[in-house]
Design a protein around this nucleic acid. Sequence first.
DNA 1: CATAATCCTATTGTCCTACAACCCTATAAG
DNA 2: CTTATAGGGTTGTAGGACAATAGGATTATG
Lengths: 240, 240
Amino acid sequence: MKIDALGRTPQLPSRIASRILQEIVEERLKPGDRLPTEQALADSFGVSRNVVREAISRLRSDGIIQSRQGVGAFVARTAAPTLRFDAEALADPSAFQALFELRAILEIRAAGLAARRRTPEQLAALARALDRMRGTEKWASGGVDADLDFHKAVAEGTGNAYIRMAVSFLSEQVRVTIMETRARPEAELGDIVEVTIAEHAAIHDAIAARDPARAQDAMATHIHLAALRLGYRLELTEQV
Amino acid sequence: MKIDALGRTPQLPSRIASRILQEIVEERLKPGDRLPTEQALADSFGVSRNVVREAISRLRSDGIIQSRQGVGAFVARTAAPTLRFDAEALADPSAFQALFELRAILEIRAAGLAARRRTPEQLAALARALDRMRGTEKWASGGVDADLDFHKAVAEGTGNAYIRMAVSFLSEQVRVTIMETRARPEAELGDIVEVTIAEHAAIHDAIAARDPARAQDAMATHIHLAALRLGYRLELTEQV
DNA sequence: CATAATCCTATTGTCCTACAACCCTATAAG
DNA sequence: CTTATAGGGTTGTAGGACAATAGGATTATG
């Protein structure tokens, strides 16, 4: 054995799961089809039935496969193999755009709610994050941290634990994708930092003034421009 | 064995996975902690090590647990977001309202996007979910499943993987809270089912007609009424 | 002949044992 | 003190056995 390059565990079941998934994605196995028996799969992959079972178990918990005792395992009819989020989301070039689209939906409204509900303490936390953005030299990773913290502080101001969690999760996704795609000439950075800080300051001011409409406007402007700076253009969707 | 009521498979590994997850949610196992050995877990749960391995395998593929060969299995440090969540969400009485507030923000816009972007296949899936809601007798758990599937189908229609994931996650939260708070006289159920189906049908029709504004309206109506039926009143927030 | 009951077989679900791969610690050697 | 070395413990994989179940084939039965 020992096929892996790095010092990580081989994760044989993962590999087998991928190969089965591949069969499904490439439509050699279609929804409703029955998979070969576990023993047959084990033989053909050259592993034990145990490994095959763990692989199938994962696909089953992702809803891609359904098993019936005494009959066999079947490709689920609703099998959209799109749950393998992190893996393919980062590979897909449109992922960044999708991420920003969701951020726009969520954070624009969050800004509006924060403008209405924020406590003085939450406003202070927002101001601190803004100060940290201003204080960071060279906009290294510290700047990104402060930026993300600012957005989390806005979410905090809504008083809604679910929104806070969702924004927090998306922020981490943003961080990951930023790390992946950070290939930007240093020269441009100076101006971008100025603009970015100004956008955040506008959001802060609107929330401080308890002006929901202005807060939503400011957040909308910021997210759309941020996406644009990364080369993505978000649709402007009308609202209810 | 044989504890399950229906004729379905016992799904022992699922049950074990839930019990391990419970230990984590209730903070008897904290991030970074090492789990008992597989053999110890097998003994304490009265199952074979094989079942424990499958259970851990699922938790691992969900990023909740990390295993290191020769050392042990550990509660992931980043496992928190989805988990810590359940614990406090269920405890807080205002959680349901917060959940519906986020659903409103997210799913209303998702309906609008789906009306614009959905493919014929995605529309067909939406119709299927609606039919399943109509076909369910007595609105037992099957009805809830169909309901949640409908909302997932709407999210699918946006073509945005992040939105799909977020809605899917929130749907599970809804399911959990519904199971917790299901204490409603059977007599009322009949009418409620009729109304609920009608609301969903309106959403479907608007998406079928590719009418974003109407889709958003229909979804907004549905979510606000659904919250109201559970005793919560959502604020109507103005939009950008 | 039609139909129902029964057996047979294939497949998944679970259990068990054994060993390989690996990590950590303790102990010995330099 | 530093570095090998040995040992024990844990996860990863292999392989065999049986239970549980479903579906088809066979046989009994009217």
